[in-house]
């Protein structure tokens, strides 16, 4: 068996693949954050809580209404997206004229409240959610067993990321959105309802977080803290990629997933820290992030 850096090659390949899968989650979550920040200038600290709400929505649909995974994949993001729209209308829309810091503090407070409510209602140990029968089992890839569900997560994340990027960069709607962030007054003068567009964009960003939550429910513990563990890492991903850069956050998400995966082999204790070390280095060298515009 060939060794690379003292690690058997098959093990290394396995780790690269697993890193890519985790990167898919980072990419999906940082995508939503980038969309919201890029178009609304709001640092959405409630994103982790909304990811968690997606997973809980899937659990509630299954246990209270008997609605399974595939329908939940569509319904949960719509439900959570609507709660996002309500939040935007009621609170966030009042902050667009103020400094970023206010949006950050407001959404952080909202995240704490949402998590607190869920913790009071459901406790901290989590709730069970099964892998759908069609996606259970594993493929033998020779160098490792690859659960079918993980493969599905990567495919779903890639489709979602690509579609979002295409909508924002290549369609007329996306062009309106981008124009509105540059000069809202001018776009409004052309007869585009900018406030509604902004509200829907926030709802869409939140729905992206909720899709991530539904995808995570069968493999991660569905508990009120599940988002707060991920969100800090995802913020680092967005900062490294360049705040507001959609392509940047997708590519950085996948890349950092791989870096983290490799760290888990070479120095597991540091796996929670490595992304922040990279963030510090990137900020020193390129303050606007890898793909950001200064």
């Amino acid at each position: 068996m060939d060794d690379l850096f003292g690690i058997p090659a098959p093990l290394l390949f396995g780790q690269l693949l697993l890193g890519l899968i985790n990167g898919a989650f980072y990419a999906m979550l940082s995508l939503g954050l980038a969309v919201i920040f890029g178009l609304l200038n709001i640092v959405n600290m409630a994103h982790g809580a909304q990811f968690m709400m997606g997973a809980f929505a899937a659990w509630m649909l299954l246990n209270w209404l008997g609605i399974g995974y595939w329908a939940a994949l569509l319904l949960a993001p719509i439900i959570v997206g609507i709660t996002g729209i309500i939040l935007e209308k009621a609170f966030i829309s009042r902050l667009y004229k103020l400094d970023h810091l206010y949006g950050l503090l407001l959404t952080f407070g909202l995240a704490l409240i949402i998590e607190g409510v869920f913790r009071n209602e459901f406790g901290s140990s989590g709730l069970p959610y099964r892998i759908p029968a069609e996606l259970s089992g594993a493929w033998d890839l020779g160098f490792m067993f690859m659960p079918v569900y993980r493969g599905w997560v990567v495919i779903a994340a890639l489709i979602l990321c690509l579609a979002t990027w295409l909508i924002i960069e290549k369609t007329r709607l996306g062009a309106y959105l981008r124009a509105a962030t540059e000069n809202a007054a001018l776009v409004q003068a052309f007869g585009v309802n900018v406030p509604r567009m902004v509200t829907l964009t926030y709802g869409f960003g939140v729905a992206l977080a909720a899709v991530g939550g539904v995808l995570a429910a069968p493999i991660y513990s569905v508990n009120p803290q599940m988002g707060s563990n991920l969100i800090i890492v995802v913020f680092a991903v967005v900062v490294i990629g360049g705040m507001g850069s959609i392509l940047g956050s997708i590519l950085t998400g996948f890349a950092l997933g791989i870096v983290e995966g490799l760290t888990k082999v070479f120095w597991p204790e540091a796996s929670a820290t490595v992304i922040f070390v990279i963030m510090a280095i990137v900020l020193l060298a390129r303050p606007a992030g890898l793909f950001g515009r200064a």
Partner: peptide, 9 residues
């Protein structure tokens, strides 16, 4: 959150 890497090891 993710243990897959450790499980494979």
């Amino acid at each position: 959150t993710d243990y897959s890497s450790f499980l494979v090891q």
